[in-house]
Nucleic acid binder design. Structure first.
Lengths: 215, 215
DNA sequence: CTACATCTGTAGTGAGCACTACAGTTATGG
DNA sequence: CCATAACTGTAGTGCTCACTACAGATGTAG
């Protein structure tokens, strides 16, 4: 039958604005009034489109993790675990101090603790952070199988370690640390990989992808 | 003249309870109703003693940092920078998974982002975290002077790195990581110190405190 | 014992919160 | 061109929040 009046706002642009508000003020600190103003809509439109404040957060998180996930996917293509870690940490040092966004990471700034009634918000954020750790672990398991990590290396522990450092960098950024300070943390963190990696020659021997394509 | 009716509750015990509530729910997530119930008092007593919710937080933070500061002071007495870092990280892995308290660190769980009107809370927490970093840096500067860190080591960067890892461990703990997982992160973090430390013999040569006391 | 200073418990206060009822608007289907 | 379906803006809803007025309680000083 009839199809009704179409939506007057761009949902993706509105989500980007909502994302910024949650990022800057956290889930509990963000008010519907702030959100609707930033999104340029009125409360009923928000609730029609996203159901609730928590639904809006989830939609914003989906958008956020899609972007960050793409960066991670690209990073995981690096030839060795060591290079994966380096590009990841350096990229994150840059992203978390990008002046066009609030500092730090939405998955951390969103909220680690919440009042009664929103206990699942920290849980939701934690499970999204765990996704990154999971993909890192898989990549390091592959690296171990390919020999660019030693046989004694623990891929799960390395992934957990990197995740912890990333979260630490995020908090540092949110409390005012600059890009170069984050890079220094990243550089020191990478030292943990230096003992776990096979020699450079052996590592480069296990990276024949380019060599195969360009013989 | 007259001295008035004395206080009926133990302010320090009440502060301990308030600390737990802020720790578990964050500053914004904690309500006056929860706080007064946990403290076993009524709102007027709370406001008479601490002035405001933010004043109560500050008093709770004072108590928290006093305890943690004592642990840090003790840890900084370790003979070398490497041992300082090891004892600190291992002690923190234990403290942050102590089942008699909420997981993680109050200075992180308290809130990284806040709604308009409490913007100074994240700032207050950050400046208290910075205090630990500052004391670590001073200790590493001493270590460099004493020669148990190499001449090329950067004490400020090492302190910042450790602070970042500690924060990362705190967030991990608050999202459910166990003690052994935190210890693994700590062990990997310490690898950053292995290149910065002089040889073991040289390091032990610069630890004559015990030798002097017990010749 | 009386006067006074401070605390305690009851019972609120206005403000701000997430969320929504409703009437008006703008599209499509027939 | 009319009926219908979905969205929009106004103006609220009840609820919870941090905070407090006030009266009664309980101590000390003289």
């Amino acid at each position: 039958m009839a199809m009704g009046r179409p939506r007057c706002f761009d949902a993706e642009k509105a989500l980007d604005e909502a994302m910024e508000v949650f990022w800057r003020h956290g889930y509990e600190g963000a008010t519907i009034a702030q959100l609707t103003e930033a999104m340029g809509i009125n409360p009923p439109s928000l609730y029609a489109a996203f159901g609730s404040k928590e639904g809006l957060l989830r939609a914003a998180l989906d958008r956020y993790t899609a972007k960050r996930g793409a960066f991670l996917t690209e990073t995981l293509c690096a030839p060795t675990a060591r290079v994966v870690a380096e590009r990841l940490l350096m990229g994150i040092a840059e992203a978390q101090t990008d002046p066009s966004h609030p500092p730090g990471c939405l998955l951390v700034q969103g909220g680690l603790a919440c009042g009664s009634g929103s206990e699942n918000v920290p849980f939701e954020l934690a499970s999204r952070r765990a996704e990154t750790e999971h993909r890192l672990r898989q990549r390091f398991e592959r690296a171990k199988a390919e020999g660019d990590l030693t046989a004694t290396a623990d891929p799960a522990a390395l992934a957990r370690y990197l995740s912890a450092v990333i979260v630490g960098m995020s908090v540092m950024a949110s409390s005012g640390a600059g890009r170069e300070e984050l890079r220094e943390v990243a550089r020191l963190s990478l030292k943990a990989f230096e003992q776990q990696a096979e020699t450079v020659t052996k590592a480069s021997a296990s990276t024949p992808i380019v060599a195969l394509i360009q013989p």
